[in-house]
């Protein structure tokens, strides 16, 4: 599933050290994901009314909107990896579902354990996790 109207609002202030530190990464991500989301840089010192309307309590704040509605926000400085994961997972919906892999692994472990120990509850929980992982992977491939 690919959302067609994604806006990333980046609220910063000129004196914010963390904002400046994250700017190169944001610029790189804007190029990488520019076809699927629009980046808007908002200077809180220039547009205080707009920032108040967004209920921003600190900078940097990154707000992700889908079809005009806020989906998620990130407050404070985060690592480059976490920032990209945030945009990908909440924005493009195309992030590789690593959670599904973990669930599948846990499911398999429980199924095998349940079978070896003759514990049907373990096997049942494992099957449920494996099924959940399978559904997630199927949805991701659509």
């Amino acid at each position: 599933m690919h959302a067609s109207n994604i806006d990333v609002l980046v609220v910063t202030t000129p004196w914010c050290h963390h904002c400046r530190a994250m700017r190169p990464t944001l610029d790189r991500l804007a190029v990488t994901y520019g076809e699927s989301m629009r980046f808007h840089h908002i200077d809180a010192s220039v547009e205080p009314d707009r920032v108040d309307g967004l209920h921003v309590q600190g900078t940097p704040t990154i707000i992700l909107e889908v079809d005009g509605a806020e989906r998620a926000r990130l407050v404070g400085r985060v690592s480059d990896t976490d920032l990209e994961a945030f945009l990908v997972s909440y924005g493009t919906h195309r992030a590789f579902p690593t959670d599904a892999v973990v669930r599948a692994g846990a499911g398999v472990a429980l199924i095998v354990s349940g079978w070896m120990l003759a514990a049907p509850v373990l096997a049942a929980v494992g099957l449920a996790l494996a099924a959940w992982a399978a559904v997630t992977m199927w949805r991701w491939t659509r």
Partner: peptide, 11 residues
């Protein structure tokens, strides 16, 4: 335990 700085919250 996600990291020392920054929090992500689903809206």
């Amino acid at each position: 335990t996600r990291g020392k700085k920054g929090t992500a919250a689903a809206s």
